[in-house]
């Protein structure tokens, strides 16, 4: 199935949670969905007979614009050999997304990374803490307005 057909199918099952479908070249088409329902949609995408997205290729966090952050999910199906991109856009003031780590185990570490570097909070994640940076690090480095902290445990940080 191509992305447009999948969008129509999703829209019929989740009329409120599926927000938009974008297909502007050269960007690959993607579907924008709601942060609160992403887990249900992903479970549906994984288990529906003619979708079967069993593989989460990549989960990226993006500093979308001045006020918003985004999480991008690249899905792939081994069974049907098709791909799908999903975007979730959340405001910087309240960057909370439902976790999908119960759907794909891959998401566990990727979501921790997205939290660590971009500050997106994944609700109901089983092991939610920083992954690459130390636990007591301040701020989220990949945000465009990130200022590095002056001292970390008494050590000067900027070189």
């Amino acid at each position: 199935m191509n992305s447009n057909e999948i969008y129509n199918l999703l829209k019929s099952f989740f009329p409120d949670a599926v927000i938009d479908y974008k297909d502007d070249k050269p960007v690959e088409p993607y579907i924008i969905v709601s942060a609160k329902e992403i887990d249900k949609i992903c479970l549906f995408l994984r288990d529906e007979e003619n979708l079967q997205f069993d593989y989460l290729s990549c989960l990226s966090s993006v500093d979308f614009d001045n006020d918003n952050l985004a999480a991008v999910y690249n899905l792939y199906s081994f069974v049907h050999n098709h791909k799908l991109n999903i975007k979730v856009i959340v405001p910087k003031s309240d960057p909370v997304i439902k976790t999908v780590s119960s759907v794909w185990n891959t998401a566990n570490w990727h979501e921790r990374e997205a939290y660590d570097l971009m500050g997106i909070i994944f609700d109901e994640h089983p092991d939610f803490r920083r992954i690459l940076l130390p636990d007591d690090w301040e701020g989220y480095p990949l945000r465009k307005d990130y200022k590095v902290q002056e001292f970390y445990n008494g050590m000067k940080v900027p070189y």
Partner: peptide
């Protein structure tokens, strides 16, 4: 203006660049 997710096979597996 745009975005891409491209994946290739390295000795360890799928290396994707977004």
């Amino acid at each position: 203006v745009g975005e891409i997710y491209a994946r290739t096979e390295t000795p360890r597996g799928e290396l994707g660049f977004y």
